[in-house]
Design a protein around this nucleic acid. Sequence first.
DNA 1: GTGAAAGCGCTAACAC
DNA 2: GTGTTAGCGCTTTCAC
Lengths: 331, 331
Amino acid sequence: MATISDVASMAGVSTATVSRALNGKSTVDPELAARVFAAAEELGYSPNGPARNLRRQEAAVLALIISDVENPFFTAIARGVEDVAQAVGYSVVLCNSDESGDKERRYIDVAIQERVAGVILSPTSTTTNTKRLTDRGMPVVAVDRPLPDDEHDMVLVDTRMAAKEAAAHLFAQGYEQVGCITGPAGVRTADDRLAGYRDAVRSAKKRSSARLVRRTEYKAAGAKAATVGLMSQDDPPDALLVANSSMVIGVLEALDELGKQVGRDVGVVAFDDVSWAKLVDPPLSVVAQPAYEIGTVAAQLLLARIADSDRAATTTTLSARLIERGSSSRA
Amino acid sequence: MATISDVASMAGVSTATVSRALNGKSTVDPELAARVFAAAEELGYSPNGPARNLRRQEAAVLALIISDVENPFFTAIARGVEDVAQAVGYSVVLCNSDESGDKERRYIDVAIQERVAGVILSPTSTTTNTKRLTDRGMPVVAVDRPLPDDEHDMVLVDTRMAAKEAAAHLFAQGYEQVGCITGPAGVRTADDRLAGYRDAVRSAKKRSSARLVRRTEYKAAGAKAATVGLMSQDDPPDALLVANSSMVIGVLEALDELGKQVGRDVGVVAFDDVSWAKLVDPPLSVVAQPAYEIGTVAAQLLLARIADSDRAATTTTLSARLIERGSSSRA
DNA sequence: GTGAAAGCGCTAACAC
DNA sequence: GTGTTAGCGCTTTCAC
């Protein structure tokens, strides 16, 4: 592959001049510049990124480590990040930790080794170790889930409040025994959504009961089993708050197999306004999170910190919006 | 950030020895090795990837350029690629071309600049230019959609056959006027699915009619408008073959708004077995493509070609499977 | 305005 | 088995 010195000798100038011409730095004689461009074109020259980054000691690349590529919530964040990054000439590399602390650690190492300019991640758990990043002065922004220490920028959603509202809505619709299916303990969004649910139970003057709560992986299969378990006990719940959109697939399947009609028999509200929410029967009531905006804000924060490492860490909390559809109505 | 010479001086050895010890190359005196590891640990040393890659003239990184991150079909491919790559120590960077030839070109350039070991891509159109890649000796594997020249490995699905089967199934179920909503002209999967549909029309001895076909972006909005257009003409279709899962969302919304009952009034079969297919009413009949397998095969092919650039290019064609559910039945 | 030369951090000959 | 040294391709002083 052609190198800068190939271009230089073809154009009859020094490598320094080629570099200057191609980067539009300082002024280069127009005539020489033209020769340089012609030679570069002719040779199909494309600068060697690693070499440049090695020399410059910086790369215009951001790493985005998300916990589940197959979850539309996270891919929407990715789009937000990408749009902001592209606009200022940064590339984004997307890594899928797949809710595994191991893979997450591996990708954090890759980010360090590749010397990316900064990292945006949705921590798989509260034990996620970003120390390796911060020790090396790498800017980190956490999205969706907070990091334990407060030296990072974070972009979160007031998910506890949203969960409370959603559960309160179910009570207001006349459901008596609202249950909750949430993610694993230690995953902050799962804990918060459960806490919000409990807030609502308390406000509604209901007795909170562990019988009505199940925790599983943020996946359809676990949620399906949990729903079957929940519904097959005496005095089962007549409504369910479901903590994510993968889970609600399992929940709806289970309800269907148990012959329960959603809405009339069992009210359902789930997190995340997925594209197919209006297609199920009855249409699914959801808590819509501003995923794309989380991405854009996170990217802006990260870029700001890359530019100025002394900025104080900020936490941005966006709010979610309850969208009432048929699944949370008895009518 | 600590460099290899920091480690070397701390351990009282040369940088060469550090490199050897850390990479487990040739043999190093156990005692020295121990000192090296201790020093590296102490300093929080992490090798500089760009520097290493520059020297080695190769990086264990694959680029995967997909045309839509929000489409589960492509994210499933991504998981397949990643699983294979991880297993042999390669990282995967995921890039979203968003069906835009421009973004695709930009990412191809990034891949070249970063000197990744190889590229897997789903070309946005038949005009995708991979010449820049191949000119530089970069291995390329096309997935989902073929590339015009036959010097590349490709992993495709026999989507024409699958479309024919799906349309034939609709005729067999007693639908008389089967229509087709497919993607933009020039996108090979869109063209092939249309061709397969026409094959079925011919086999069923129906007169093929442009009235029954619509082409739009591979998105819900376009498909929704197309459906409204299709259904509001005289003698509208009584069944629809839909070329992708984003589109079918628009189709089902439109049908619902027009008061048509899916299955009884209008049969529907769509490409891609999405997670929510069984939740809509009636459950959605689909053409299930082996997306994950496409990813694994593509990654294996790419790795093989990286190891041996002289291999002849191969084309792997996987087959899709029709899954009959309620949406394609009048009962 | 341009070129010579140093050096980013690493690995791989090559000596010993 | 270990150290010395050259050099990957680039940018950036520093002279001129």
